[in-house]
Design a binder for these strands. Structure first.
Lengths: 247, 247
DNA sequence: CGTACGCTTGAAGCTCATCAAAATCTGTGG
DNA sequence: CCACAGATTTTGATGAGCTTCAAGCGTACG
């Protein structure tokens, strides 16, 4: 069961949390112009919740009741085919919005499950729509995020169609670094995604992913043991990522 | 050079054209509630234009000035990699909107070129935004189209990652039929896309596309000679499209 | 009617999937 | 803290499927 914490917090408390929210895609919704922040926060009745590893945040076909933003943790989005095969469609890291692309149909497409204990913000759809209606900023932010989503998906599409295993994995790793690591920090992280999910996500098999990682290790591009990764030559990985298989 | 025809037409003339517009994704923008259509059409100052085969409608990196809707013809969207390789990202057929996903950045990503002489509607971005601001219907339509675009791209993504050549091509053909052929018409069409572009789009080579088409021919699923296609067993193609390679 | 381009077909090679076994990691209880 | 069991990851051998390259064929168009 999902452990719910539906507390309404004070503005002061939110100001404290600004750091945690600073890379949130919907930052402007919770922390607008200081002049009227109080009312906004109040109206949001923002709910922080937790899902533990293995629990689902969203189920396929479910009516969309909320929009979610990841605070801490990691989530996996996937769909099941008619044959019962799993297809991993994406991952969500802190600061990222879950379920926005369901906005129109108001029905979730695909499942979203926690890869580790994950803390998130829950924004009721009604609140979101109300805010959107009277707030041009949020309006255009929504469009921006949707456009970005189209762009990202298309990029992934091009990636998987035209790249070989090395380039696919390099693209994936570079993307993870960009999303998970602060710009000037060392590229070292605990990746909660297992090899099977990476493979599925990239349209490869677990064997190929493992082998390719070994290749990268041999070439000194990274140090990876289990789920602990350190990227030693991001430059080179970026180069491999843009190097095409069929030229 | 693009042959421009910037005439403002009368409402009566538009009513006549309703049939041509009836499957337009932005239909509601031009033909809203009959009561106030006149003003809407007037405001739109809709411009019909032409691009001939091989001419570009949109160039990569270009500032977005208009939104386009295809009336007649076919367009190809593609990007160029740093190595100079072409990657075909999609096709546009009558009734479909070009460039909506650039809405936020207001910069076009990728090129769009005409595969045949193509007639389209040009909606100035400013007009579109103005209409959007005071028209909730168009507002939500935009979001819907963006959501749809995410969904379509994701679907295509799943397709190409996990399917073999047969399934990819079948998916492509079924999709073309759905977009190009009226529901109850015989599935017969002149596909302006050449084998090379199909191959690139599906992440295959021209040889594999040709070979797979031959397989389909041998099995009696279709009759294809050059760019003329007749789908003889859409049912079976749909079955192949959903049949996965790696189960 | 001939040329050029696109399409088809064939043979050889390479990448990645498949299956299986070994190695390593993770978590649990002693 | 260590030992053990289950899960995950790595590695290896083999083969299917797709690419590559090249040659031949068909078709469109001047």
């Amino acid at each position: 069961m999902i452990a719910a914490r539906n507390n309404l917090r004070t503005l002061a408390e939110y100001q404290h949390r600004k750091e945690a929210c600073s890379n949130c895609a919907l930052f402007c919704m919770c922390f607008p112009d200081p002049a009227d922040s109080a009312s906004r926060i109040d109206e949001l009745k923002l709910r922080h919740k937790l899902v533990s590893r293995g629990e689902h945040l969203v189920l396929d076909g479910e009516k969309m009741r909320n929009i979610y933003v990841v605070r801490r943790g990691a989530l996996k989005a996937y769909e099941l085919t008619s044959d019962g095969d799993t297809m991993v469609t994406g991952f969500y890291f802190p600061g990222e919005v879950v379920g926005l692309e369901s906005l129109f149909s108001e029905t979730h497409k695909g499942h979203v499950v926690a890869l580790q204990d994950t803390c998130y913000c829950e924004i009721p759809l009604k609140t979101f729509k109300r805010l959107q209606k009277k707030n041009g900023e949020l309006q255009s932010l929504t469009q921006q995020l949707l456009c970005q989503s189209v762009y990202d998906t298309r990029r992934l599409l091009l990636t998987t169609r035209h790249l070989n295993a090395q380039a696919r994995l390099a693209t994936f790793l570079v993307n993870v670094v960009d999303r998970l690591v602060e710009p000037d920090d060392p590229a070292e992280f605990h990746l909660r995604i297992d090899r099977q999910d990476i493979a599925n996500y990239l349209g490869l098999t677990i064997g190929t992913v493992s082998r390719t990682l070994s290749d990268f290790r041999k070439h000194g591009f990274l140090t990876a043991s289990g789920k602990r990764f350190r990227i030693d030559d991001l430059q080179e990985l970026r180069a491999i990522a843009t190097r095409f298989a069929n030229h």
